[in-house]
């Protein structure tokens, strides 16, 4: 249904098969809150609320939205780091929500994560060589020490680091270099799917482009599939084949990159795109502003009807009552808006 359809020849020569590598169906994650010592009345946060999408092999799906929209929780539910409240996560044909921890260990080799802040995800007491080599030993991918050292050197060189970096510690590297280590460690497991959770947003502007280019090169070389979670709409447009926009736990729009950016259908997507400042004073001077009023409502107490209606510039009375389904408004272009 929401799958990446096979399309024509692709620019970097990555073939897309029609078969999805990952399919998320009706994923819901609720967190109980409150009721404790200072918690006040107990309640339920609907962090992810009925999310469905699929990613084809070799494809990049961008997942965008503002803080608290549920994009990171969606990633964690795919990995089963959070067990979903309901819904299924089909990866290489198996429903991960039904697997126990032992079975998941094997799956987690095939799904790797690259985090926003490489510093907090790298053990400060381990050398870079040990950090990259450890999973190779633990998962017995390369059990023999000398062969493992060679493999580590290969991986470091593949992500643009030097052999001597293997003897350094994380604090001796720059932010960009640390992110390269995080990428090398993920790559060591020979994953099929990589969940990139804000992988460049903590990096300096001049380094972001280096890392994005590296991610694209690795995808082409190893046939990787990416779920690219980010809030930077320009970066997401650059790297993604398809894009899903999340708001308050729901996908409000999902389609091909070009359709989303050239012809957004959901008023939230339109507002997001209009809010991004363009690095050009002459364009900015003449640009109409759709400044979205208000703030994202609490997921503890979401508004009735369409969750976006309190901020929506075009909402009508019906929007306050009816929850819009994600529907195919144009071929391959899905939006959850009654007025789209």
């Amino acid at each position: 249904m929401l799958g990446g359809r096979a399309r024509g020849p692709r620019a970097r020569g990555r073939p897309l098969s029609g078969e999805p590598l990952l399919e998320v169906r009706n994923l819901t994650k609720r967190f109980p809150v409150g009721g404790g010592l200072f918690g006040g009345a107990p309640g339920v946060v609907r962090a992810v609320d009925g999310v469905s999408f699929s990613i084809a092999r070799g494809e990049t799906l961008g997942l965008v939205g503002e803080s608290g929209c549920g994009k990171t929780t969606t990633g964690r539910c795919i990995l089963q780091l959070e067990r979903p409240t309901s819904g299924s996560v089909l990866f290489e044909g198996r429903d991960l929500t039904t697997l126990d921890e032992t079975a998941l260990r094997d799956v987690r080799r095939r799904i790797q994560v690259i985090f926003q802040d490489p510093y907090s995800s790298l053990n400060p007491r381990m050398t870079i060589g040990a950090i990259v080599g450890e999973p190779l030993a633990v998962h017995r991918i390369v059990p023999e020490a000398a062969a493992r050292a060679r493999r580590v050197r290969d991986l470091l060189s593949r992500v643009g680091l030097l052999p001597q970096h293997a003897r350094r510690y994380p604090h001796e590297l720059s932010g960009g270099q640390r992110q390269r280590v995080g990428i090398a460690r993920a790559l060591a497991m020979e994953p099929a799917l990589v969940i990139c959770d804000e992988p460049v947003s903590a990096l300096d502007v001049s380094i972001q482009a280096q890392i994005i280019n590296l991610l694209e090169d690795l995808q082409a070389e190893f046939g990787l599939t990416y779920l690219f979670i980010a809030h930077d709409l320009a970066v997401v447009r650059h790297i993604s084949d398809r894009v899903a926009v999340m708001y308050l736990g729901r996908i409000v729009e999902i389609t091909d990159r070009k359709a989303l950016y050239d012809d957004p259908l959901h008023p939230y997507t339109k507002a997001l795109l209009a809010a991004v400042p363009i690095p050009d004073p002459e364009i900015e001077a003449g640009r109409p502003r759709i400044v979205l009023g208000g703030e994202v409502p609490s997921p503890l107490n979401p508004p009735p009807g369409c969750v976006f209606h309190p901020r929506c510039p075009i909402a009508v009375d019906r929007c306050r009552r009816v929850i819009p389904d994600l529907r195919e408004v144009k071929p391959g272009h899905w939006a959850a808006c009654l007025l789209a």
């Binding site: 380094i207 447009r237 650059h238």
Partner: peptide, 25 residues
């Protein structure tokens, strides 16, 4: 110049490849 060229822009056609500033800070 490098900074301005390295960032992807929503108002321009998507480039096949970004042009980073090479090297480290």
């Amino acid at each position: 110049l490098g900074l301005l060229r390295s960032v992807p822009r929503l108002d321009e056609p998507r480039r096949e490849r970004l042009a980073p500033i090479e090297g480290q800070p």
